[in-house]
Amino acid sequence: NRLGIIYEIQGMKAVVLTSEGEFLIIRRRKDMKVGQQVSFENEDIYNV
């Protein structure tokens, strides 16, 4: 599992900021809110 803070939500995608200072786009889940810490898997990351 990886951890990140939700920075922005766009439709079915969420932008998270990881503890390494990396911004990633992941698959959104219904319970996500901006500012929330979430765990996610590598499979949830969109390749940009």
Rank of each mutant, 00 (worst) to 15 (best):
L3E: 10
Y46W: 11
T18Q: 01
I6D: 00
A14P: 00
G11I: 04
M32L: 03
G35S: 03
I6P: 00
I5T: 07
V15E: 02
I9T: 04
L17D: 00
Q36C: 13
V16S: 00
V16G: 00
I6E: 00
I26S: 00
K13A: 09
Q37Y: 04
R28T: 15
R27F: 11
V15A: 04
E22Q: 10
N47W: 04
V38L: 08
V38G: 00
G35E: 02
L3K: 09
A14H: 01
K13L: 05
Y46P: 02
G4A: 05
Q10E: 15
Q37A: 11
V38M: 04
M12F: 07
G35Y: 04
D44C: 05
I9H: 01
D31W: 07
L17N: 02
Y7T: 10
V48M: 08
K30E: 15
E22A: 11
V15F: 07
D44Q: 05
E43W: 05
K30L: 10
S19P: 10
R27K: 12
I5M: 12
G35H: 07
Q36Y: 09
L24H: 05
G35C: 14
Q36D: 10
D31F: 13
I26M: 03
I5N: 03
Y7S: 06
I5R: 10
F23K: 11
I5E: 02
V38P: 00
R28Y: 15
I26K: 00
R28P: 07
Y7K: 10
F40A: 03
K30G: 15
S19I: 08
V15L: 12
Y7Q: 14
I6Q: 00
E43G: 05
V38R: 02
G21T: 01
V15R: 07
R27L: 09
K33S: 13
Q37I: 10
S39R: 07
E8V: 08
R27C: 09
R2T: 06
K30R: 10
E43C: 11
F23W: 15
R29Y: 05
I9A: 02
D31H: 13
R2H: 04
V34H: 04
D44P: 10
Q37N: 11
E8N: 08
I45K: 04
V48C: 15
E41D: 14
V48T: 12
E20I: 07
E20S: 11
F40D: 01
E8T: 09
V38Q: 02
V48F: 03
I25N: 03
K33E: 15
E22M: 12
L24T: 07
M12D: 15
G35T: 03
G35Q: 03
F40C: 02
L17E: 06
I6C: 08
I6W: 00
E20D: 11
I45F: 03
I6T: 01
L3D: 10
V15C: 12
Q10R: 13
E41P: 06
I6K: 00
S19Q: 15
Q36V: 07
K30A: 15
L17R: 11
R29L: 10
R29E: 12
L3Q: 06
F23P: 02
D44G: 02
I26R: 01
T18F: 03
N42Y: 10
E22F: 08
E20K: 10
M32N: 02
D31P: 07
E43D: 14
E41W: 06
K30Y: 06
L17M: 14
M12S: 10
R27I: 15
E43Y: 04
L3N: 13
V48S: 15
V16H: 00
F40P: 03
G11E: 12
G35V: 00
Q37R: 08
D31Y: 11
E41T: 14
E41H: 11
D31V: 03
Y7M: 13
I5Y: 07
N1G: 10
G4Y: 02
G11K: 08
E43A: 06
N1E: 12
A14Y: 08
K30V: 15
G35R: 03
V16D: 00
G35I: 00
Y46K: 11
K33D: 08
S19H: 07
L17G: 03
K13V: 07
M32P: 01
I26F: 02
R2L: 13
S39H: 15
V15Q: 03
Q37K: 10
I25A: 09
N1L: 09
L24K: 06
E41N: 08
Q37H: 13
V16Q: 00
G35D: 05
I45D: 04
V15P: 00
L3V: 13
D44N: 03
I9S: 01
M32T: 05
R28Q: 08
N47F: 06
L24F: 12
N42G: 04
K30H: 15
D31I: 03
L24C: 09
A14W: 04
R28E: 02
I6A: 01
E41F: 11
K30T: 10
R29V: 05
D44K: 03
V34K: 12
Y7N: 06
Y7G: 01
G4R: 00
Y7F: 06
M32I: 03
R27S: 06
F23S: 09
F40I: 06
I25W: 08
I25P: 05
V34Q: 05
G21K: 06
Y46L: 15
S39N: 15
N42V: 13
F23H: 11
